[in-house]
Each structure stands twice: as C-alpha cells, then as structure tokens.
Computed example of a mutant assay.
Amino acid sequence: MPLPGLATNVSHRPRLADLKPLVQSLQAAPAALRRQTEPRITPATQLENREGYRSDFLGDFIVPWPSLDPAQAEDVHPTGAAMNRLDYTHFSITLSRSRRLALVAGVNIDGASSVEVDRGRDAWAYDGRLPSDAQLGEELYADNLLDRGHLVRRQDPNWGQDAHTANADTFHFTNCSPQMAAFNQKTWLELEDYILDNTRRWKARATVFTGPLLREDDPTYRGVQIPTAFWKVVAFLGDDGKPSASAYMIDQRRELGKLELLFGALKTYRHSVDQIETLTGVRFGDLADYDGFSNEERLTGTRIEAAIRGPEDILL
C-alpha cells in the first residue's frame, strides 16, 4: 500500500534535465560561500603614494608625529616606511606588533574643504602592506556587541579632491579598535562632533591624535586583550590665532565585564596632555606647553580631571 503523499506514477518523477539547474547551483554554492567569507585585502600597490599625516598642517604651529617611549618603540610593527608609519589619505597610523592595534593614529582635518561622503555599507579590509595575521580582523567582532570602532573618525579626513579615497581608507582594520557600543553613541561621539563641526563652521584646521590605552592587565576576550580606555589629543589654533591643545580619555573598564550581556553609560573625561603621555608612553612634542590643564598641573602639582557630560563641558 503506498504511503500517503508518495507519488507512484513514474511520470511525476523529475527528469534529469529538470534537475540540472539545481545540481549546478549546488555545485556553485561552496564557491559563492567562499567568496562571502574570504577576507577583503587592499593590495599594497593600491595604497602606494598616500600622503599621510602632515606635521606642518597648522602652518607655523608645527605638530610632529608623536614619538614613543622605549617599550612602545620596540613594539612598533615595522612597515619599511619612514617612522614605520602606515600612511593613508590625510592620516597615518603606527601599529603595535604585540596587540595588533594602533598605538597612535593621527589625522589632519580641513574644515574649509570638508566633503560630506555617504557612509554606505561598511566594508572593512586588511591592509595588504602587512600580513593579515598582524591585524585584528572580523573574527573578534562577529556575533557580539563590540563595535568596529574607527580611531580616525570616518568623516575627519574627508576633505578636498581625495575625500572619497580618504573615506574608504578609514575602513581598514589597522584603523579599527574594539570599543563598547556606547563609545560611538554618547559623549565621545559628541566630542568628535564638536571638533569636526567647529572646523567646518569656522573653516578651520585641526590635528587630532587618537589611540587605545594599552595595559598589560587588559581583560582578554576571544584571545584578544581589549583596551580599557581610549584617548584623544587635539592641536589647533585658538580664536586668537595662538597654538592650543587639549586632551581627553574615555574609560570603559566598568562595562567590559558585561561584554556579552549589555552596555551601559561610559564616562569621558578631560585630561591634560601630560597625563596622556604618562599613561600611554606616547610623546606629543611640546603640545603640553599649549594645554591649559598641563600648565595648571605643573603650577599646582595637582592632577586635574574633569568629567564631560555633554558638549557644554567640552573645552577646546
């Protein structure tokens, strides 16, 4: 007795010719899947002749590329280029060999020629000038709440005729660092907005250095040590045309323990340039001389830290 639903009429059986398209699609599936999972790599030749960070960008206010304390200098991943930098369009990066993250990223912002570039679909890629395994990639960020955080903000180098190239350059894993979701959504974003909006409004220029605070006891997730804080140092010309600098740090230690659960409010603080140098081992030339917090700390011998709750607390 035939089972219910089982066709017994031979004429109902599919012909081999009818099955051919299905077989072909099944054969093609593994190749298509490989194309979807294969990492994107920007060939080294495509990144040749990039004009990266410029120390003379602020005119007579020369802001050299940061130097590093001996321990940090030994950890720099060699690139074969000057100062072992990775140069991109309007920004540059020095990469940590041990942590596979940027030690410092620096960008020049020109508000007078800023170009609004639509974000589109995020497409992160490895920098072909370095081995892929020297860069933290998608395996860290997949299926969790960690942000693929831009260190050089996507919009900052987007100015002039090379704005679209600059925009694409920011989507390299060398410019990416694991950040709590709220990092890009709260006061740190307001700080970035404040800097960029003011350069655009006043058609001004600024230089911004950013990086993770790398500690030996940083917590480990998926075999990767996650930075507990991020810092930013800004150099610019004040309303009076005089050189100025300011520094900031966001701390995410309290939330890292909740990495796989939820993300709460983070705290951003105004610090002195001197403090950032002490904490990071990154040296910013004489920028501390132009920073009010650093000068006050030197006079009083007291460390200054100011919480930032919103744009009204940001002082440049």
Rank of each mutant, 00 (worst) to 15 (best):
P2G: 13
L3A: 15
L3I: 15
L3T: 13
P4E: 14
G5W: 13
N9K: 14
A17F: 13
V23D: 12
Q27A: 14
A28S: 15
A29T: 11
A32S: 09
A32Q: 10
R35C: 05
P43C: 07
N49G: 03
R50V: 05
G52E: 01
G52I: 00
R54V: 02
S55L: 04
G59V: 03
V63E: 02
Q72D: 04
A81Q: 06
A81S: 12
S92K: 02
S92W: 00
L95C: 04
L103S: 00
L103A: 01
G106D: 04
V107I: 10
D122Q: 06
W124N: 05
G128T: 09
L130F: 06
G137L: 07
H150K: 03
H150P: 07
V152Q: 02
Q155G: 05
D156L: 04
N158T: 08
T165F: 02
A168H: 01
T170I: 00
H172K: 05
N175W: 03
N175Y: 05
S177G: 01
P178M: 04
Q179K: 01
Q179G: 00
N184M: 04
E190D: 13
E190S: 07
I195E: 06
D197A: 09
N198I: 10
A204K: 06
F209M: 04
R215C: 03
P219A: 06
V224H: 05
T228P: 09
A229K: 02
F230Y: 14
W231V: 08
V234H: 07
G241N: 10
S244G: 12
S244W: 09
S246R: 10
A265E: 15
E277I: 07
T280V: 12
G281S: 09
G285I: 08
D286M: 08
D291M: 10
G292K: 03
T302E: 15
T302N: 15
R303I: 14
R303K: 14
E305I: 13
E305W: 11
L315T: 14
